[in-house]
């Protein structure tokens, strides 16, 4: 049985089921208990599972992520919420110097099964310190997995798998997706990490994206369809592990590729995709690979300016045409 629920409700359901099924899981974060989370993702869980399982923390990101690491190393499974991804930068030592490296540094003795749930991206005028897309930063560090779901179905299935991992997972939700609806089955399911999903089959061009940009790419595909262009949309779903094979397979069929992300263009993860594709599918490329990303400026507050800085559907349409030699700069 499937029904339509929102992205936020899907996360809530996943957390609910995880807390119900695994005694060692507990939630930790700012305002997630009584208040139910600033985006209401943890709503009702405090009442259901109590303050021992759904724990409000002081505003001490380094401190409580460090605490989560210690708890994870000693047999618990913390699911930590960092209210805005921008705040992970406050705790970056604990995430990248500590959690990401313990297994390796200890020769495999220490495991850190820690999920850090957070939300990123722009689109609601939150300004430069509350609108960033930092997935590429985390993906550059061996030892953490980085998941960026785009739909209610994916976010639930991927969160369940993330909690089952025996390593740190950075689980990046998108603030603009919380209220989007989609089909989610009532039955239990999970989606393995590292499997890209082809959200739309197509033959003329491959568009690679994740998180909110998947929906933008699908909208772009609709517009392109009117002009007879058949775009294939690949949702990477996670940057680490990276399912480059699905991308390569697709490019071998379409011969053109556009990479879309909300992160800043320069040094964005799109460059990694470009590099891998030219390396593994060079002889299948019929033109240069185009990147669509945010302008290289801090995200402005003004909604119109913000829109201009972040990739929009029209930018994707334009990039696809460029890749197809329909419109050349």
């Amino acid at each position: 049985m499937t029904r339509q629920i929102t992205y936020a409700e899907a996360i809530n359901e996943a957390l609910d089921e995880i807390l119900r099924d695994d005694e060692s899981v507990f939630l930790l974060g700012e305002d997630i208990g009584h208040y139910g989370g600033v985006f209401k993702v943890t709503k009702g869980l405090y009442d259901k599972f109590g303050g021992d399982r759904v724990i409000d923390t002081p505003i001490s990101e380094s401190g409580f992520i460090g605490l989560g690491i210690g708890a994870a190393m000693t047999g618990l499974k913390p699911v930590i919420e960092i209210m805005w991804i921008d705040f992970t930068l406050v705790a970056i030592d604990q995430i990248l110097n500590q959690a990401a490296k313990f297994s390796y540094m200890s020769g495999g003795q220490s495991k850190v099964p820690l999920v850090i749930r957070t939300q990123g991206g722009g689109g609601r005028g939150n300004g430069a310190q509350h609108s960033q897309s930092l997935e590429g930063l985390f993906a550059q560090f061996p030892g953490v997995k980085v998941v960026c779901p785009s739909t209610p179905y994916d976010v639930k299935g991927l969160l369940k798998s993330s909690v089952a991992e025996n390593c740190p997972v950075i689980f990046i939700e998108h603030k603009m997706l919380y209220n989007t609806k989609g089909e989610v089955p009532e039955e239990d399911y999970s989606i393995p990490l590292g499997k890209a999903d082809i959200k739309r089959k197509g033959s003329d061009v491959t568009i690679v994206s994740l998180s909110r940009m998947v929906q933008f790419s699908l909208n772009a595909a609709k517009e392109l369809e009117k002009e007879g262009i058949d775009a294939e949309i690949i949702d990477l779903r996670s940057l680490a592990p990276l399912d480059i094979e699905t991308v390569i397979e697709s490019v071998k069929r379409t011969n053109r590729i556009v990479v879309v992300h909300e992160a800043h263009t320069t040094f964005g993860w799109g460059a990694e995709i470009v590099s891998r594709v030219q390396q593994d599918a060079f002889d299948y490329l019929d033109g240069p690979i185009i990147r669509v990303g945010a302008e290289d400026v801090p995200i402005p507050y003004n909604l119109e300016l913000e829109k201009e800085v972040l990739p929009q559907v029209k930018d994707i349409v334009k990039a696809v045409k460029e890749a197809l030699y329909i419109e050349v700069k």
Binding site: N255, Q279, D280, F282, D283, Y284, L285, D286, G287
Partner: peptide, 24 residues
């Protein structure tokens, strides 16, 4: 980590732009 096997020798056109996919 990446083994790409034998790469076929597609002809090259130094003075003529030809996309890689076209050469293949």
């Amino acid at each position: 980590t990446t083994s790409r096997g034998k790469v076929p020798m597609y002809p090259r056109f130094p003075n003529k732009p030809v996309s890689p996919a076209s050469r293949r």
